[in-house]
Structure formats: C-alpha cells, structure tokens
C-alpha cells in the first residue's frame, strides 16, 4: 500500500491513504458517519448530503470528499447533527412516508436514520404530499415512488453492477424523479435477481419484491434491535 497519512475526526486520529474519501477512511477505522445515498459496493455520488461533515471549517460530503493530511474533520457536533436532522426531515416531508403501512418499516434506512438522530419534535416544514405513481406492472416487483428519496442506489446498481440501466433520473429540481427504461417496469429487462432489486439497495420501501412483505416480525427487524451504524450517538436535540 502507498504511504498513509492521518487526519483528525471529532478529535480522534484516523489514518488514510491517498485517494480515500473521508468516509472510506472513517469506515476502515470503525467510525460511522451517517449516510443514505452511499452504500457498500456502489460508487459514491454525494447527493443526499446526510454524511455532511466539516473539513477545516467547510461543509463537505464525507462520501465524495478525499481525505486530506492533517485536516480537522467534525462530524458529531450539534451544528452538523442539526443539518442532518433537517435533511432527513425534509426527505420525510418531500415524499409520502407512511411508516405504519410500509413493508420496509423496521429495515428502512430513512426511518432508521430518523430514529438514530432522535427526530421526535414537531416539525417546521409543511408536508408536500405529492401525487406519485405506483408501478405494479411487473410480475415480481413493485415500484412505490411515494417512498423514493432519489438516492440513486438502484440507478448505480443497475448501471454499474447489472449492466442494464433500468433506472435513471428524469426531470430537474422538485420535478426530479427516478424513471424506468420503458413505459413501465414490465417493459424493461429488469429481473428479480438483479442487484438493483436486492433488498439492501433501496434504502426505503420504493422497490418492493412481490409476495414477501412483512417477512420479519415486529421486534426482530433490522433496526428494532440496533441503531443504523451501530452505537448510538448524537441523540440530543
């Protein structure tokens, strides 16, 4: 391995090698930085901004920002946690996130992130309640875009791993959404065995595999037992 250097993350020393992002270096050192649009095995794109940190006083996305020697990185500070809470709240307000009826509840990363950040306070944002389509045309897969948070994980998995380009962003700004390569999902060459359809790719309940909803009982679901990212931090609001 090439030469390594160190930087400080919330006062602790983290070692990194050139080309590593702040998040990769932190992960390697066992320090969790919250994230939604980034997941193992996919190229980071830095779009959800939940991994926001301050590097030498500037806010950057930890998943795309290369680590820099001797830099000072802040992650679990009241200011940064406030940003993260606001970002996660806005995701809840932008779509239609009905946790009580969602089969992803309990294994949903958006929900788990809100739990981890301790979001229980009244909100200052309006609920947008957009009218968004549900595409149940495919025999094995449902797309409930009410729950989509535009993380783009399905896009990257389909393009970079499956080599299919089933999903892509369409539109801009508030009109941006994830579209499929056809009139609806049944017209594409998507398959239930694609990496993009795997349960750990969609962080919410947008991509649903038919015939297997609510397969883990309440109390035993992934985030019933432990917070996302392990040891709970930054709960205070």
């Amino acid at each position: 391995m090439a030469e390594t250097f160190t930087f400080s993350l919330d006062g602790g020393k983290i070692s990194a090698h050139p080309g590593q992002s702040i998040m990769e270096a932190a992960d390697a050192a066992g320090v969790y930085i919250p994230r939604l649009c980034d997941t193992e095995g996919l190229k980071p794109q830095g779009s959800c901004r939940v991994c926001v940190v301050k590097m030498n006083g500037r806010t950057v996305a930890a998943c795309t920002q290369p680590a820099k020697a001797d830099s000072v990185v802040e992650s679990e500070t009241p200011e940064i946690l406030g940003y993260r809470r606001d970002l996660v709240r806005m995701l809840f307000h932008e779509g239609n996130h009905l946790c009580p009826i969602c089969e992803a509840s309990g294994r949903c990363e958006l929900q788990a992130m809100a739990y981890r950040l301790g979001i229980t306070q009244s909100t200052k944002y309006p609920y947008l309640q957009p009218v968004r389509p549900v595409d149940a045309s495919h025999p094995d897969i449902v797309l409930d875009t009410n729950r989509c948070i535009l993380c783009g994980r399905c896009i990257r998995a389909s393009r970079d791993i499956d080599g299919k380009n089933v999903f892509e962003y369409v539109g801009r700004g508030i009109h941006k959404k994830v579209g499929v390569n056809g009139d609806n999902l049944a017209d594409t060459n998507v398959s239930i065995d694609d990496r993009a359809i795997h349960l750990d790719i969609c962080p919410v309940g947008c991509i649903i595999q038919k015939g297997r909803g609510f397969f883990t009982p309440i109390g035993k679901r992934q985030f019933d037992l432990a917070p996302i990212g392990g040891e709970e931090k930054g709960h205070e609001e």
Binding site: F92, N96, H97, P100, S122, Q129, N146
Partner: peptide
C-alpha cells in the same frame, strides 16, 4: 401534545390527499 402518526403527519387518513 400530538399523539401518534395521524396527529403528527396525518397517518393513514392522509392517503386520501394524494391518490394516483
């Protein structure tokens, strides 16, 4: 105090606001 999802964000009844 708003108690429960319906009070907090509308809950299941709010589904009637956005019907495809």
């Amino acid at each position: 105090v708003a108690v429960g999802q319906c009070a907090v964000m509308g809950g299941l009844p709010v589904m009637r606001n956005a019907i495809m």
